[in-house]
């Protein structure tokens, strides 16, 4: 094969791969189902080793804030009977919450596995407004932080009158109930955000990009010239950056799913206002159908002119 022909094929291949990476097309998902993709599928083991650091930088999870291990799937509060297999799925295959590490990921059916496990991947959040005595506001916030820590959670943010904590999703319901006992609940809002679809898309894109990277690496090994090698190298860098981004995004989702956010605003009970209204009118006088009854009193008695 002439050098010109090889360059031409290389350019065509990189262009095709770039398009596929950008689109995350199913064409390459199917390609990834080949046995040669088994290794890339098992690759995200490193993701399970990383902390579920929040990518928004708002809260930094301490060591205890690691995503739940695969053996302890957190049940969603709204549907206690349904565990969070999304975490399991991510864990078993490519999920950031952990990896079995035994290489038993089934790369032959990445998409099918996803479709076969309908359990949603849910991010739970709770917003509570509590009312306590004025002197109990700060102690109540302390108790909320303590409760979150006891449940394996951690403090996210705190002010004089509010607190945000993350607690393991497995204990979300118990945690919210416990917090509700710390004061009079004025308002309660619990929501669940389903990120299953987005997570699945990220999985597919990750698989495709790893397939592309593998091919690029193979092609780099066969590069005949320095120019070809540099061109493949640049493409390899771009694909690797994209893989890192997707992995980070998946870690973010895993952390959010594993730890539910509970926001509590603590309101001081206002002093009972004394309502000053119009004076209560005198009690209605009894009326009887008796004439003399209406003529009783000093006015008539003392009117001696008549």
């Amino acid at each position: 094969m002439s050098r010109a022909t090889r360059s031409l094929r290389l350019a065509a291949l990189t262009a095709t791969l770039s398009m596929a990476c950008a689109a995350g097309s199913t064409h390459y998902a199917v390609s990834a189902a080949s046995p040669s993709m088994a290794a890339p599928m098992a690759a995200p083991a490193s993701m399970s080793e990383s902390a579920p650091a929040d990518s928004d930088g708002v809260d930094e999870a301490p060591a205890m804030a690691r995503p739940a291990p695969p053996s302890a799937p957190p049940p969603p509060p709204a549907a206690p009977g349904r565990a969070m297999p999304a975490i399991n799925r991510a864990t078993t295959n490519t999920g950031p919450a952990g990896n079995t590490g035994n290489g038993n990921a089934n790369p032959a059916q990445p998409a099918n596995t996803t479709a076969a496990s309908p359990a949603p991947m849910l991010i739970y959040t709770a917003d509570l407004d509590l009312q306590t005595a004025r002197e109990d506001v700060v102690p109540t916030i302390d108790r909320i932080v303590d409760a979150a820590t006891e449940l394996g959670g951690y403090l996210v943010r705190r002010t004089d009158t509010s607190v945000q904590v993350r607690i393991p999703s497995a204990t979300f319901r118990d945690g919210v109930r416990r917090v509700e006992t710390f004061g009079e609940v004025l308002h309660r809002a619990v929501s669940a955000q389903d990120v299953s679809e987005e997570f699945r898309d990220l999985e597919v894109r990750l698989q495709n990009l790893r397939a592309v990277r593998r091919r690029l690496e193979e092609f780099l090994a066969r590069a005949g010239s320095m120019a070809d090698a540099l061109q493949v190298e640049r493409e390899l860098e771009r694909v690797t950056r994209e893989i890192d981004t997707i992995e980070g995004r998946m870690r973010f989702f895993a952390a959010r799913v594993a730890f539910s956010l509970v926001t509590v605003n603590v309101h001081a009970r206002t002093e009972q206002a004394v309502i000053v209204g119009p004076p209560i009118p005198p009690r209605r006088a009894v009326e009887l159908p008796v004439e003399w009854f209406r003529r009783l009193g000093l006015e008539r008695l003392l009117n001696t002119r008549e």
């Binding site: 005198p282 009690r283 209605r284 009783l296």
Partner: peptide, 19 residues
């Protein structure tokens, strides 16, 4: 006319006067 007993009339008058 109302055949009220002593207690009735005393209480009724009392209510009216207080009012």
């Amino acid at each position: 006319a109302l055949h009220g007993n002593l207690e009735f009339w005393s209480r009724a008058i009392d209510e009216r006067l207080r009012g």
